[in-house]
C-alpha cells in the first residue's frame, strides 16, 4: 500500500550516497582526463628514435643551439642545464641524456611570445653526451655536449 512512499525513500537514499561519494572525491570527473604525454618518445634509447617518436626525422646538427651546463657534474642527481635556441620559429626544445635508461628527459613546447630559452635540472646516471633537440618550422635540429658525472644520480 505504501510502496510508492518507499520507492521515493530508496531513490533519495541512492542520490545521497552518490553525492557523498562525489564530495569525498571518489568520483573525480577531472581525473579521468588523461594528460597528453608522449609515452613512446619517453621510452626511446637513441636520438634518432626519439625524433621519430615525436613525428620527425633526420635531425641536423646546428650551432645555433647553445647548451650551458657544468662540464663536470659532481652530483648526477641534480645537473643544471640552460638551453637557448637562436633558430627562427623555434617550436619546441627537448633535453636528452644519451646514457640514461630512457634518452628523453624533458620536452618543452615554446608558443609564440615565449623566448626559446629553458633552464631546468635533470638526473644523469653516468658521464654521457647530452643533446638539445629543437623543432623549428617542422624541422629538427640538435647540438651535443659531453657532461662528466662523478657521482651518478640513478643509483640507490
Amino acid at each position: 500500500m505504501n510502496s510508492g512512499r518507499r520507492r521515493v525513500l530508496q531513490g533519495t537514499g541512492g542520490m545521497a550516497v552518490m553525492s557523498l561519494a562525489m564530495a569525498a572525491g571518489l568520483l573525480r570527473p577531472g581525473a579521468a582526463r588523461a594528460a597528453e604525454w608522449n609515452k613512446a618518445a619517453f621510452e626511446t634509447k637513441s636520438l634518432a628514435d626519439a625524433v621519430k617518436a615525436m613525428g620527425g626525422a633526420a635531425p641536423v646538427e646546428s650551432k645555433d643551439i647553445v647548451i650551458t651546463s657544468p662540464d663536470i657534474a659532481e652530483n648526477g642527481a641534480v645537473v643544471p642545464f640552460t638551453i637557448a635556441s637562436k633558430i627562427a620559429h623555434t617550436q619546441s626544445i627537448s633535453l636528452l641524456v644519451e646514457k640514461n635508461p630512457a634518452i628523453l628527459a624533458a620536452s618543452f613546447d615554446i608558443p609564440d611570445g615565449t623566448e626559446p630559452w629553458i633552464n631546468t635540472r635533470v638526473k644523469m646516471g653516468q658521464t654521457s653526451n647530452v643533446f638539445a633537440l629543437v623543432k623549428a618550422d617542422g624541422k629538427y635540429y640538435y647540438t651535443a655536449k659531453e657532461v662528466k658525472v662523478t657521482l651518478g644520480g640513478c643509483g640507490g
Binding site: 597528453e36 604525454w37 608522449n38 618518445a41 619517453f42 642527481a77 641534480v78 645537473v79 643544471p80 641524456v97 640514461n100 630512457a102 628523453l104 628527459a105 624533458a106 620536452s107 618543452f108 613546447d109 615554446i110 608558443p111 611570445g113 615565449t114 623566448e115 630559452w117 629553458i118 633552464n119 631546468t120 635540472r121 635533470v122 638526473k123 644523469m124 644520480g153
Partner: peptide, 25 residues
C-alpha cells in the same frame, strides 16, 4: 588565459624540479 609554456617530462627530471623560462607580453 594564454599558454606561455607547456612541458612533457620524464622521470629523469631532478627531484623537486626547478624550471625557468621567459615570455613577453
Amino acid at each position: 588565459g594564454k599558454t606561455v609554456l607547456s612541458a612533457e617530462w620524464g622521470p629523469a627530471v631532478s627531484k623537486n624540479p626547478f624550471l625557468s623560462f621567459r615570455f613577453s607580453g
